[in-house]
């Protein structure tokens, strides 16, 4: 589904990603862990197409297409979804209208007929229930006045509505209390299927107790320095990241 080869990227002239390789197949859940400043969120931004990131080297293929050549909206229409670390508040745009517009444009791109109002409402109700999203929030302005937890839950609700192939969760657990974390994780687990894949970016192992990954990768200094199964996450939790840093330094010297 997703093949990243030797990805180098910089922001404002500063090299952030320095030769990252990763392959994600349908049905898999990958966790990307690593210390602050390793480039975790930058990877999410580059994949989603944030404009201030410049790819200087490498390739990203999504379902056989060159992802890096696409505008952010086309990436989303092809099936890439980024759950934001800091969802944006947009007063005056209602949540539901926003989703209606998004689904309309995605379907048009895929040459699908538009959803009629009834079908849309049906879908919305079904997904609200699935991810336990408050119906009251659905009709409010997009994220306006939402608590941190409500914003993250809204990201998962949008994810459920748009049914992407690849979902990138950028530190979705940050700022969540244990109950919100449980609800968000439950939503994600329900949405997992053999057809889609998840890339979960997190600093802590905590989230991975709820969303169990197939693979765990450690990102450090712009590269994946270690990959393993879910046990790696536990190891990281126990030892922290310093031992990796030391190893890395020894390796580069």
């Amino acid at each position: 589904m997703l093949i990243i080869k030797n990805l180098h990227a910089e922001v404002e002239g500063k090299q952030i990603l320095k030769g990252l390789n990763l392959t994600v197949n349908a049905g898999e859940v990958h966790a990307i862990m690593g210390p602050n400043g390793a480039g975790k969120s930058s990877l999410a931004s580059v994949l989603a197409g944030r404009e201030n990131y410049e790819v200087t080297e490498g390739e990203v293929w999504f379902e056989g297409k060159n992802l890096l050549e696409m505008a952010p909206e086309d990436r989303a229409r092809e099936g890439v979804f980024l759950a934001f670390q800091y969802p944006v508040e947009i007063p005056g745009v209602s949540n539901i209208n926003f989703l209606k517009t998004a689904i309309g444009e995605i379907r048009a791109y895929r040459n699908l007929p538009p959803l009629d109002a009834k079908a849309f409402l049906q879908l919305s109700k079904e997904k609200q229930k699935l991810v336990e999203f408050d119906a009251k929030l659905v009709n409010r302005s997009l994220n306006e006045g939402f608590s941190g937890g409500e914003k993250k839950r809204n990201e998962i609700f949008q994810l459920a509505m748009l049914e992407p192939l690849l979902s990138i969760l950028d530190e979705t657990d940050s700022g969540l209390d244990i109950d919100a974390l449980r609800i968000v994780s439950k939503g994600v687990n329900k949405l997992r299927s053999p057809k889609n894949a998840f890339l979960i970016i997190t600093h802590y192992q905590r989230l991975l107790e709820y969303i169990v990954p197939d693979f765990v990768h450690v990102l450090y200094d712009g590269r994946i320095v270690k990959s393993g199964t879910k046990e790696l996450a536990l190891e990281l939790e126990e030892k922290g990241y310093d031992w990796l840093k030391e190893k890395e330094e020894v390796g580069t010297n």
Binding site: E51, A71, P72, E73, F81, I90, V93
Partner: peptide, 20 residues
């Protein structure tokens, strides 16, 4: 960027923001 990352084209996104 938030709107575009949800599949909404640039023009539509701008229109939404102006309306907002």
């Amino acid at each position: 960027f938030y709107l575009r990352a949800r599949g909404i084209g640039e023009d539509t996104a701008k229109a939404l923001l102006i309306n907002a």
